[in-house]
Simulated scan of single mutants.
Amino acid sequence: MSSPTTNRVALVTGGSGGIGRAVAERLARDGIAVAIHYAGRKEKADETVQAITAEGGRAIAVGGDVADEAAMATAFDAVESAFGGLDVVVHTAGIMVLSPIATLDLNDLDRVHRTNIRGTFVVDQQAARRVREGGAIVNFSTSVTRTQLPTYGAYVASKAAVESLTLILARELRGRDVTVNAVAPGPTATPLFLDGKDENTVDRFAKATPLERLGQPGDIAETVAFLAGPARWVNGQVLFANGGLA
């Protein structure tokens, strides 16, 4: 990793593993100081911090429930205290419960919506108050809002709400020079996607894209790095990073 060439600072929620970790490490390679957020896996967040600092980057770990406004205010405070401000917020944290709508436990529905909708609202609210001029806010949706796969009802409903929040916040921040976008990954080789799927199912998802492979966390991280850095004219958009999945 090259020496830092920027004073920009990023907070990545859910940065302890999967896509979040890939995003944190990719932003660090651009010289951005990164705060790795975790909810319950501090040791994983610490591993990400160590990987970044070992390459000459700047990183800290911050904890908290994304749906708890007090906890997230404290996490944002910690980032600003450590690095002097905040320029980029990437909100990857989320959960997924799969079930047909007819049989879904409504407690699971509430849990998904608390993390994915309220959590996004809480993080975006803090980001809207704190991100500096020239900054970027990046939320996470899913390509299943287009593919409409059975059993994804609760998850897709939550992510459709995330897309709406994203587009409205972009317009509410008029005049601030802060972009707000969402990334909608397709099937990506992470524990969240692979858990509970047999090999045939995974192969079917891989072959569904014209590129005939699953996405990798690094593929999604490149999209985020674009939105967090040079993409100053991309605002109020949902970018589908899915290898051409319909």
Rank of each mutant, 00 (worst) to 15 (best):
S3T: 15
N7Q: 15
T13E: 07
S16Y: 06
R21G: 05
A22E: 13
R26I: 08
A33P: 08
I36N: 02
I36W: 00
I36C: 05
Y38P: 00
Y38K: 02
Q50W: 05
I60S: 02
G64M: 08
D65R: 04
V66E: 03
A73H: 09
A73M: 01
V79S: 05
D87R: 00
H91Q: 13
T92E: 14
V97Y: 13
V97A: 12
D105I: 07
L106V: 14
L106Q: 13
V112S: 13
V112A: 11
R114N: 13
N116E: 09
T120V: 12
V123I: 15
V123N: 07
D124P: 00
R132W: 06
N139V: 02
T147Q: 10
T151H: 09
T151F: 09
S158T: 14
A161M: 11
V162M: 09
V162D: 11
A170W: 00
E172F: 02
E172A: 01
G175L: 06
P185S: 03
P187G: 10
A189C: 04
D195Q: 15
D198F: 00
N200M: 09
V202G: 08
R204K: 14
F205M: 13
A208I: 06
P210I: 05
P210E: 06
P217M: 06
P217A: 08
G229D: 05
G229A: 03
R232T: 15
N242K: 02
